[in-house]
Structure formats: structure tokens, C-alpha cells
């Protein structure tokens, strides 16, 4: 014990302990930051333009209304509109593909190759959590309650740290006057099975 105390008096040991502590805190912070940055997407999809054109969320993510997963659109769904847009594909006055915006060139490439766009999901939960969109939409929640105002964003970003405390805070607040429903909504087995 005395040997350890004597060692701790050496400045070199003190400095290295401080550095190790800082590295640990920094590493933990970096690891947490990594879970909060949006992942790189195959196409820099501009949500703001599409929402600005008043396209409904449910047009591209229709699963939110009727099933667990909201779904990410296929290249065919994108092309259903983009293949007909007059600005780029007017048969009388065609714009060559090279002059299209670069992100639309990528989309055209996916369509020509018949290849699925590998969108990266941004809002993810671990596989021991079973989240279902349908009851949340049926309970009258808006998409932007959890996903943020998409009319101000290009690619999807994480607006909200998705953890159990956040889920439970909302479940409890919304069922404060209904003990039967609250029992059901804060039960472990509602999400974990």
C-alpha cells in the first residue's frame, strides 16, 4: 500500500493517470457521439424539397400507418415521379442525363441497373425492442413528434436520443389519467419479448 502511495507521488505517474482518465472520458464521449451522427446515405435525399412540395410522409413511408416498420421507398417509387418530371424528361425537349443534378443521376443509375437503393435506417432500436409504428400513429402522434421537422432537413438526422427513458416518459405522461392503460403501456412485455 505504501509503495502505491509513493508511486502516486511521482509526477510522471500523476500525469499518465490524468491522461488515461481523459482518454477514457474522451473515448466514451466519442462512442456516444458516433451513435448520434446520421449515417452516410447512398443518395443525399433532400427531405426539405419533397416536404416543401407537400408530399405526405405516408406516401414514401406507408408502413407507418398499418404495420411495425414504416418502410423506406424503393427506387421504383422514386422513379414513379422522377421519371415523369417535365423539367428533365420532357420528350420534346430532353435534357441529357449528364446535365441532371448529381443526386438524380445516381437515382437514374439505380433505376437503369434495377438495383435497390440501400437506404440506411437512422432511427433504430436494438433487436430486443419491438417497436410498432401503427399504434403510435393511431394514437394521434405526428411524425415530427419523434422525427423532427423534416421540412428543414435534407437527409434524416437523429432528433431525439432513442432510449427507454424517453419512451416511458411519453407513455406515462399520456396515460396519467388512465391507470389501466398505463399498466399496459409501461409493462416490460409491451416492447421486450
Amino acid at each position: 500500500m505504501e509503495r502505491i502511495l509513493n508511486l502516486l507521488k511521482k509526477p510522471a505517474i500523476q500525469y499518465s493517470l490524468v491522461i488515461a482518465f481523459l482518454a477514457l472520458v474522451g473515448g466514451a464521449g466519442w462512442a456516444f457521439y458516433q451513435t448520434q451522427v446520421p449515417p452516410p446515405q447512398p443518395i443525399q435525399f433532400p427531405h426539405n424539397i419533397h416536404v416543401g412540395l407537400q408530399i405526405q410522409c405516408l406516401y414514401c413511408h406507408p408502413g407507418a400507418q398499418r404495420q411495425a416498420s414504416a418502410g423506406l421507398p424503393t427506387e421504383q417509387k422514386c422513379w414513379a415521379c422522377h421519371g415523369q418530371l417535365k423539367k428533365y424528361s420532357d420528350p420534346a425537349n430532353p435534357v441529357p442525363l449528364e446535365k441532371w443534378p448529381p443526386e438524380l443521376q445516381k437515382l437514374a443509375g439505380y433505376v437503369q441497373r434495377g438495383e435497390a437503393i440501400k437506404w440506411v435506417p437512422v432511427y433504430i432500436v436494438p433487436d430486443f425492442v419491438h417497436f410498432n409504428h401503427r399504434p403510435h400513429i393511431a394514437a394521434g402522434l405526428n411524425c415530427e413528434k419523434c422525427h423532427g421537422d423534416m421540412s428543414k432537413k435534407t437527409v434524416a438526422t437523429i432528433e431525439q436520443t432513442v432510449n427507454m427513458g424517453w419512451c416511458l416518459a411519453c407513455h406515462q405522461a399520456r396515460t396519467a389519467n388512465d391507470p389501466v392503460k398505463r399498466t399496459k403501456l409501461i409493462e416490460c412485455g409491451t416492447c421486450h419479448y
Binding site: V180, E187, C188, Y193
Partner: peptide
């Protein structure tokens, strides 16, 4: 589970 009356394993 109080609502489902089951034994849960979390």
C-alpha cells in the same frame, strides 16, 4: 406482467 398476467423474461 400486470396487464397480460404473464411471467415475462426480459
Amino acid at each position: 406482467a400486470e396487464a397480460e398476467q404473464l411471467n415475462l423474461q426480459v
